[in-house]
């Protein structure tokens, strides 16, 4: 019976709509709090440093991904890095067209594992992999300890 049945008219296709009505408040964790508080208060990035194997990581971690040692050492990194890769985006995550295309880059820092993905404030004729870039921050008193404290990365 059932599997031999078929619905012949698409107007007979029924459905129910619904949603999962929750929202989230994420706290930053131990290492995340260290990173974003330092960004907010001191205007610079920090990496975590593993005392056992020496690996430094951005965003910082409370553990070493390589040797699994616990980490509570954070080292300042400044705001300058190198453009590792970039993309030019024309639409937002809902498919809506940007007024002007966005340049998004992955920025890495010398001697440090990991990196930061952010907007690039660079003319797209100039942008190239390997160029030196520097984070442009919001003024100190407008910062709130989030990724938006970084306005964009610009040519350094």
């Amino acid at each position: 019976m059932s599997f031999k049945e078929s619905i012949q008219l698409n107007t007979q296709l029924g459905y129910f709509e619904g949603e999962i009505p929750v929202n989230y408040q994420y706290t930053l964790g131990i290492a995340g709090t260290k990173f974003f508080e330092t960004l907010m208060n001191e205007g610079q990035f920090v990496a975590s440093e593993c005392k056992t194997c020496g690996v430094k990581t951005i965003y910082p971690l409370i553990y070493c991904e390589e040797c699994f040692s616990a980490i509570d050492t954070y080292v300042p990194v400044g705001l300058e890095g190198e453009l590792y890769s970039f993309t030019k985006c024309y639409r937002d995550y809902q498919g809506k067209e940007y007024q002007t295309p966005h340049l998004i880059g992955l920025i890495r820092f010398e001697g440090i594992k990991g990196g930061i993905i952010h907007r690039l404030g660079i003319d797209d004729k100039e942008v190239h992999i390997g160029m030196k870039v520097k984070a442009k921050l919001k003024p100190a008193k407008e910062r709130n300890g989030t990724l938006e404290d970084i306005l964009y990365f610009e040519k350094s």
């Binding site: 129910f16 619904g18 999962i20 989230y24 408040q25 994420y26 706290t27 508080e37 709130n144």
Partner: peptide, 28 residues
Amino acid sequence: EYEKAIKISWKPQLQYAWDNGIGIGKYL
């Protein structure tokens, strides 16, 4: 401490349309 902590808020916009299918379609 929680009140003071930096928090990131997110409200997912996930809406679904679940098809009735064959058996439940008949039931409905």
